[in-house]
């Protein structure tokens, strides 16, 4: 999996939809919780997962689609890696 490429894709999505250029600054660490730091509101997780499945050519397991599993960059990348995500 192209980890750096997918990370940038997620940052671009955050910028394009929520933070308009500020996303990289808000994510001070890939380990921080996005809910706690106000980076993503709970309802936007559905939009994020739809985006990831469509753009990373992956079908994330239904059982793992919880906010906790996608609450932070490293958590998202880990789940994508486990599911065989790819770019392009």
């Amino acid at each position: 999996m192209d980890r750096a490429g997918i990370r940038q894709l997620i940052i671009d999505w955050l910028d394009d939809n929520h933070h308009f250029g500020d996303a990289e600054d808000l994510i001070t660490s890939d380990d921080i919780s996005w809910i706690e730091h106000g980076i993503l509101k709970s309802l936007a997780f559905v939009e994020l997962i739809l985006f990831l499945e469509d753009n990373c050519h992956v079908a994330l397991p239904r059982a793992e689609l919880t906010r906790e599993n996608f609450d932070g960059m490293n958590k998202i990348l880990r789940k994508l890696e486990e599911s065989g995500a790819r770019l392009g």
Binding site: S42, L43, V46, E47, I49, L50, L65, T66, R67
Partner: peptide, 20 residues
């Protein structure tokens, strides 16, 4: 409602997918 209804509905593979 979000975890057990809205999420599974709008993330399903069928007709409901993406109908936010």
């Amino acid at each position: 409602l979000f975890d057990y209804l809205y999420g599974p509905l709008t993330l399903s593979r069928g007709w409901w997918r993406g109908r936010l």
